[in-house]
């Protein structure tokens, strides 16, 4: 049974968690085209590599993000939502600066 290093509760059996899927941004609700929406809803990228995913710790109702390498099913890092947002902002800043 795999271990998930939850950012708040520590390492727990994966049976305590539910995965929602990759972190994606929703297309516009007012003028998103049908093609864009169809791709968002029904076509999974299924990337073989490192992806960020939404996970839920069912016992505490806490959502968080886990970075996972799908080729070897290894969980690389996990963040609480605030920490993830901070991380994303930092990354955007550095890419903008480049």
């Amino acid at each position: 049974m795999k271990l998930m290093p939850c950012p708040v509760h520590g390492e727990r059996n994966i049976a305590e968690f539910v995965c929602k899927g990759p972190v994606l941004s929703m297309p516009s609700a007012t003028h998103g085209s049908p093609q864009l929406w169809a791709r968002y809803l029904f076509l999974a990228e299924n990337k073989a590599g490192i992806i960020d995913e939404w996970w839920l710790h069912t016992a505490s109702g806490m959502w968080f993000v886990a970075r996972r390498d799908t080729t070897c099913d290894e969980i690389l890092q996990t963040w609480s939502i605030e920490a993830y947002r901070k991380e994303r902002r930092k990354k955007q800043k550095t890419t903008a600066q480049r």
Binding site: P5, C6, V8, I75, L76, Q77, T78, W79, A83, E87
Partner: peptide, 8 residues
């Protein structure tokens, strides 16, 4: 501190 990213 809590709620810091958990590194492998």
């Amino acid at each position: 501190a809590r709620n810091k990213p958990q590194n492998k």
